[in-house]
Nucleic acid binder design. Structure first.
Length: 938
DNA sequence: CTAGGGTTAG
């Protein structure tokens, strides 16, 4: 606002030229519109009226645009009345305003009633149709447009792009080139965006080459779009190079590069960039805040949000929704509520992003009712709102409600299905997970990596190897077998099902491993009795990766130590948790250590650890301690502990009564049981299930369908070899396996929580990260991309020095040769030699000399496919100049690099030829050619 | 000096 008034003060000062005076006013009006400063705009209008220039045509048009933008119909009407006659410009303004308001048909009516139209009228309407997905009407007009210029071509190209018609937009681009219209920077931005969205590296390089050829190399927008292109295709180094070499950068460049550091996992560096940015807009703020949120740094996100408010920047909907997301990560309902109130005050209640975040917030904070209230107020619900509401219900156990809602979704997205799947998964209704999954497949919806991971997680929890292998096959068919999330789920599934060999196999083959994958493997090894291997893997991880141990890995490590009796080593790890790994042990770590000590007979030490806990011990820790007492006959401790537990949870009573029972003190057993009854403590029911012929049979211990061994055996007759029966009860983890046809019970010590399942938690985190992240992430993209699409090889032809980059692929060689041929034909230069990029520096000189020795008097050095780090710009011309020093009589030319996409090849060739013919004409004076008309003279 | 096309976050 300050700058606006500064400009105003300029206006107050006498300005010599009238044109300058008008110009200054117009620019301020433009700013008012852009920054949505309605009051300032109106004040200025009054002032302009007073000094008598408000009816100046150019001023009046700006005023009109301003009031149209603010939707002040009374003012608009007044202006139109004062304006003498509807000229073409006013008409065009009205057309584009109506497009902005969504009244495309009205815009068309205005267009039709115009006595004559110009290129602006046509373009406004063509792009208007495209904005609302009316592609056919737009193309109909486009083909009849008598004024086809760059802008209308670009409008059509980018409009098609926004409608997801990438290939069509490229074809349109080709037609444009064919028709002889040269692309400008905006066109090139669209083509780069098309390449980005099609994940087509070669196409992007071609666009890049063309940009350089046409002299848009230093255009900020083109470079910005190229940065985004490089980032989305995983070429982080390329993105950084472009950024660094940019002569001028704007907020967008900075915000894009901030994102690069986030992609690299370096949030600190990203923050440094953020702090260093010369200019920030609400997008930069929201980028940083949302990235903090995404990566789980919720507190930082909130702090930054606060800082932004303190800096007087009004948050846009994106910031608000990120902040709310951060709060729901932190489960901070109350600050969330106050933001909600604020949003209501701001009148931003109809933003789908904000609303979805609010639904998530209320959902995760256990208020599905409030979530529903938000949901019901949304007038333009999109599928994300529906999905959030479904998750809100299922995360609160209201699965019927979520199912009901799910059935009502007008158009289900993959996210809708995934919400259902993760909902059932989170509520441990694994049979339902499969049910939904199967329905999904039947409906024709292809699962994504998130679905597959969740379903594998269900397999893992059911220890269902058969189903798991089946899903593994599906994952393979879908091409997900390299996906880090799917692989991690596979590692976990195989480990949980006891198939440690396959688990290890998947893990070893993973192209990339993260914290969660290591957690799954380390945990899997530990739980399957491979304690030593588990510890080895941990050490290897510490040595060879940058992964810092998390609390779950440490839990697994403690578990492993406990299981191979490495009590002292385990204690060492435990004691170094805070000092070395900076992780505060939680109750589960304590349980593990208590268990470890109690098991090895160090019962009193275990008791000490228990009493030193800062947090509330888990029931299973008491259990472990008591079991230790039982095993080692520490009745005194047992009693002391037992009394402490009397007020505690149900499991405590049971364990206590078990302790008494095991030492034959039946009176105390009865007393404990009586106390339980009296206090209404109920041991929650366990559940067993068996999977026979792909069908799950469930048994509950307390509802009369108690597992009947005869019934089970009867079932097993059908399928005795492949079946496996499992049982997990909340307090005793009991596994029943069919061994040589006989069911036998394998009791695993400890309860559900005491069973220490870090991976399970690990996976709930995994599911979360999917729900907030686009599953088609960089990693996936990188896999799609395959091998680097480098450049071309060397053709050892006489004449032109071609400097290229990258691999020596055959097809690229062909392209190079074609290019060389074209060059020769166009320029008539003799061909002498080509040099490979890796050898370029030393060999340019040699190649140059060789050209001259073979009689060349004119030499072209043309880098092919160079990375946009301006190697060619910086090194090649100077190297060439260096080489040329020895031959003052020889003229030379360095051209910009070229890239060629098969689709664009022919037409781009033509275009480039056009550029080159110009270049060639100036060859004798040119050192660096930046394209048509942009040759820098020697 | 007035009207039409684009790039950053979710």
């Amino acid at each position: 606002m300050g700058s606006i008034f500064k400009s105003l003060s300029v206006i107050k000062n006498p300005i010599k030229s009238f044109v300058g005076f008008i110009e200054a006013n117009i620019s301020v009006l433009k700013q008012c519109t852009k920054q949505r400063l309605i009051t300032e705009g109106q004040v200025l209008h009054g002032h302009l009226y007073k000094i008598g220039i408000s009816s100046h045509r150019h001023v009046a048009v700006k005023l009109l645009i301003m009031y149209l933008d603010f939707r002040k119909s009374a003012e608009v009407d007044q202006l139109l009345k004062d304006y003498d006659g509807f000229d073409m410009i006013v008409h065009n303004c009205l057309i584009s305003a109506n497009v902005d308001w969504g009244n495309v048909d009205e815009a068309r009516r205005l267009f039709d009633e115009m006595p004559e139209r110009n290129e602006v009228s046509w373009t406004a309407l063509i792009s208007g149709y495209l904005k609302y997905g009316r592609v056919d009407e737009s193309m109909w007009l486009f083909q009849r447009n008598p004024f086809q210029n760059v802008i209308s071509w670009t409008a059509a190209i980018s409009g098609l792009l926004s409608n997801g018609m990438h290939l069509n937009s490229i074809h349109l681009f080709l037609e444009m080139l064919k028709s002889g219209v040269m692309p400008n920077n905006v066109t090139l931005v669209s083509i780069v965006r098309a390449s980005t969205e099609m994940v087509d590296f070669t196409m992007g390089l071609t666009a890049l080459s063309l940009s350089i050829k046409l002299g848009y190399e230093d255009d900020v927008s083109v470079c910005n779009s190229l940065i985004t292109f490089s980032l989305r295709l995983g070429k982080l180094e390329m993105a950084r190079l472009i950024f660094e070499k940019m002569g001028k950068r704007d907020v967008i460049s900075w915000t894009a590069i901030l994102d690069m550091y986030v992609e690299m996992g370096d949030l600190e560096e990203a923050r440094r960039v953020f702090d260093e940015m010369p200019e920030r807009n609400e997008v930069s703020w929201s980028a940083m805040i949302s990235r903090y949120t995404q990566k789980g740094y919720s507190t930082q996100a909130i702090n930054l949000f606060r800082q932004m408010i303190e800096n007087g920047i009004s948050p846009n909907s994106s910031c608000l929704s990120s902040a709310i997301n951060a709060l729901s990560n932190l489960k901070s309902l109350h600050p969330g509520k106050s933001i909600h109130a604020h949003i209501t005050k701001l009148g931003m209640t109809n933003d789908v992003f904000v609303n979805s975040s609010l639904i998530d917030l209320y959902g995760t904070c256990g208020n599905p009712k409030d979530a529903r209230q938000v949901f019901d107020t949304i007038t333009n619900k999109n599928v994300v709102c529906w999905n959030s509401m479904i998750s809100a219900y299922s995360s609160n156990g209201q699965l019927e409600e979520s199912k009901k809602l799910f059935d009502q979704i007008p158009t289900k997205s993959i996210g809708s299905w995934n919400s259902m799947v993760t909902g059932y998964l989170g509520n441990e209704q694994y049979d339902k997970v499969f049910e939904v999954f199967n329905t999904m497949l039947l409906s024709g919806q292809t699962p994504d990596v998130s679905t597959i991971s969740s379903v594998l997680c269900a397999c893992a929890n059911l220890t269902s190897l058969h189903k798991g292998k089946n899903i593994h096959g599906k994952a393979f068919k879908l091409g997900f077998h390299h996906d880090i999330f799917v692989c991690t789920s596979l590692v976990d599934m195989y480990a949980k099902a006891g198939d440690i060999e396959n688990s290890k196999r998947v893990f070893t083959k993973m192209p990339e491993k993260n914290e969660v994958s290591y957690t799954a493997m380390i945990q899997g090894l530990a739980e399957n009795g491979y304690a030593k291997e588990s510890l080895d893997l941990f050490e290897e991880m510490e040595k060879n990766s940058h992964i810092k141990p998390n609390e779950l890995i440490l839990l697994a490590i403690l578990f492993a130590c406990s299981h191979c009796g490495l009590v002292n080593k385990g204690l060492d790890y435990f004691n170094s948790m805070e000092t070395v790994y900076n992780i505060k042990p939680n109750e589960r770590h304590y349980t593990c250590v208590v268990d470890m000590l109690a098991r090895s007979g160090r019962v009193s030490q275990a008791e000490e650890v228990m009493s030193s806990m800062a947090c509330e011990p888990e029931a299973s820790a008491w259990g472990a301690l008591l079991s230790g007492c039982r095993t080692y006959g520490e009745e005194e401790i047992a009693e002391r502990v037992g009394l402490k537990m009397m007020e505690k949870k149900a499991g405590g009573y049971v364990l206590l009564s078990n302790v008494y029972a095991s030492s034959g003190r039946w009176g105390e057993v009865m007393e404990t049981r009586r106390l339980m009854k009296e206090k209404g403590v109920k041991k929650s029911g366990g559940c067993s299930w068996i999977e026979v012929r792909n069908k799950l049979h469930l048994f509950y211990s307390q509802d009369g369908t108690h597992m009947d061994f005869y019934f089970v055996l009867d079932l097993l007759k059908f399928d005795i070899v492949s079946s496996k029966m499992n049982s997990v009860s909340p307090s005793m983890n009991m596994k029943i396996v069919i061994n040589e046809g006989k069911p036998c019970i394998m009791s695993i010590k400890g309860g559900k929580r005491g069973n220490l399942r870090p991976t399970k938690l690990g996976f709930s985190r995994l599911c979360y990260s999917y729900s907030t992240q686009n599953p088609m992430n960089l990693r996936t993209l990188r896999c799609c991309l395959g091998k680097e699409n480098g450049g071309v090889g060397i053709g050892n032809r006489d004449g032109v020095i071609i400097v290229d980059h990258g691999s020596r692929r055959k097809e690229s060689n062909l392209m190079l040769n074609e290019f060389v041929a074209m060059f020769v034909e166009k320029t008539g230069y003799p061909i002498v030699e080509a040099a490979h990029m890796e050898l370029a520096k030393p060999s340019i000189k040699d190649a140059f000399h060789s050209c001259v020795e073979k009689g060349a008097t004119r030499v072209i050095v043309s880098p092919f496919f160079l990375f946009p780090g301006r190697h060619w710009h910086q090194d090649i011309p100077s190297l060439t100049a260096e080489a040329a020093k020895d031959y003052p009589g020889v003229s030379y030319l360095v051209t910009a690099p070229l890239g060629s996409h098969p689709l664009l090849m022919d037409v781009v060739d033509e275009t480039i030829k056009r550029c080159l013919s110009h270049v060639a004409g100036h060859a004798d004076e040119c050192v660096v050619c930046k394209g048509t008309g942009k040759c820098r003279l020697h």
